[in-house]
């Protein structure tokens, strides 16, 4: 098992130093090899457990409820500008 750690880091939005790549790669390999033990278990007749409440069809009617004010919405924002959330420029060739 070999990992493209920089790719995974990018997907996870993490900054990884070059000298960490090798170490993380071996650590991830170790971890996943261990987790692979699970593959030995026969789960053919075991249902998925992405839901554990047994609930279904929990929906709401199409009714408008009150929202935050603009001020409230921006209260915890690191930065804002004229009512907008402001973040560092995202590179896009538009």
């Amino acid at each position: 098992m070999k990992f493209n750690v920089s790719h995974i880091a990018k997907l996870a939005n993490l900054h990884i130093d070059k000298n960490e790549l090798e170490l993380l790669s071996s650590q991830l390999t170790k971890t996943l090899t261990y987790i692979n033990i699970l593959k030995d278990i026969n789960t053919e007749n075991t249902p998925n457990t992405d839901q554990v409440t047994g609930l279904k069809n929990v929906v709401r009617d199409d009714i408008v409820t009150s929202s935050f004010t603009q001020e409230e919405a921006l209260l915890n924002a690191k930065d804002s500008y004229k009512g907008f959330f402001k973040v560092k420029g995202i590179l896009e060739n538009e």
Partner: peptide
């Protein structure tokens, strides 16, 4: 660009 800085403004 605000004050020479590239930024992205978000309206949710």
């Amino acid at each position: 660009k605000i004050n020479g800085e590239s930024v992205s403004l978000i309206d949710f």
